[in-house]
C-alpha cells in the first residue's frame, strides 16, 4: 500500500517531461495551467494528478535548457508565464521520443512473450 504511490510517481516522472515537451511542440508556447488542462485531457482519470505536480517537471526542463519561460498576457488579459520549446528542446524531444518508442516496443515484446 505504502509503496504504490511511489511507483506511480516514478513512472510518471519520465513520461511527464516527455509529455510536456510533446504538448509544447504541438500546441506552441503554453502556460502551466493550459499544459495541466491538456494533461487532464490526455490522462484517463483527470483527478489523479494535482496541477502543481507539473512544476517540478517545468523546472527540470527549464534547467536542462530545453524550454524557456517568458511572461505574457493571456487572451483573457491575465498575466501568465508562457513556456516555449528551445532549439535544444526540439532536438531533445525527437531523441527522447525515439528512446521511449524503442523502450516501450521492447517492453511490449517482452510482455507479449510472457503472455
Amino acid at each position: 500500500m505504502a509503496s504504490e504511490p511511489k511507483t506511480r510517481v516514478e513512472l510518471l516522472q519520465g513520461t511527464l517531461d516527455l509529455i510536456v515537451l510533446q504538448a509544447l511542440a504541438t500546441m506552441g508556447p503554453q502556460h502551466a495551467y493550459a499544459l495541466a488542462t491538456r494533461l487532464e485531457q490526455v490522462a484517463d482519470h483527470p483527478l489523479t494528478l494535482n496541477q502543481g505536480t507539473l512544476y517540478p517537471a517545468l523546472v527540470r526542463l527549464e534547467q536542462k535548457g530545453w524550454i524557456k519561460g517568458t511572461w505574457r498576457t493571456t487572451d483573457s488579459n491575465r498575466e501568465a508565464k508562457y513556456y516555449a520549446l528551445t532549439a535544444a528542446g526540439t532536438k531533445a524531444l525527437s531523441q527522447q521520443t525515439e528512446k521511449w518508442r524503442r523502450l516501450s516496443a521492447l517492453v511490449d515484446k517482452l510482455l507479449a512473450g510472457e503472455a
Binding site: 496541477q51 483573457s76 491575465r78 498575466e79 501568465a80 508565464k81
Partner: peptide, 12 residues
Amino acid sequence: RELHAHLTLLED
C-alpha cells in the same frame, strides 16, 4: 507570481 497567475486562471 507564477503560482498566483495559475490560481487566477483556475478561478476564472
